[in-house]
Simulated scan of single mutants.
Amino acid sequence: MGRNIATGRLALAASAACLALLATSCGEGGSDDAKAGNGKAGNGTAKEPGESSGPTPGPADDAPAPPSGTDLKGMLVKAEDVPDFLAPPGGSKETEVIFSGDARTFFSSDKPACQVLSGSMLATPQGTPRATAGTVGVRGMGQQKPEEAEGPQDGLDKAFDAMADMRMEVVSLSSYEGDGARSVIDGYKDAVRRCGAGFTIDATAEGKKALESVQSGGSGSGGQQDGPMPVVSLEAIAVDKGDDAAAWVLKVGEDGITLPINVVAVRKGPVVATVSSTSFNFSGNGKPPLDVAQAQLDKLTGVS
Rank of each mutant, 00 (worst) to 15 (best):
G198P: 06
G196C: 11
S183W: 04
P129V: 11
D84F: 04
M163Y: 03
F99N: 05
A205S: 15
S213L: 02
G256P: 10
G69A: 06
G286C: 07
T301V: 10
G198M: 09
F85K: 00
V77T: 12
C18N: 09
S53I: 08
R9V: 13
L72A: 07
A36S: 14
L122E: 00
E177P: 15
D62Q: 11
S174C: 07
A65N: 13
P129Y: 02
K299G: 06
E235A: 15
S92K: 02
G140V: 10
A79Y: 00
V303I: 13
R167V: 08
N4D: 15
I261V: 15
G91C: 08
A14F: 12
K111N: 12
S53C: 08
A17V: 10
A41R: 12
S68N: 04
E254I: 07
A103G: 07
V184F: 05
G222C: 06
L300A: 05
S175W: 01
L21T: 08
P228K: 02
S175K: 04
A65G: 12
S53H: 03
G269Y: 06
M168R: 11
A16Q: 00
M141S: 11
V171D: 02
V232E: 10
A295Q: 03
R194V: 11
A123W: 06
D186M: 08
P112S: 02
P288Q: 07
N38E: 10
D157L: 04
A181W: 01
D179T: 12
A103L: 05
P270D: 01
S120H: 04
A273P: 05
T128I: 09
A197D: 14
D84Q: 10
G223M: 12
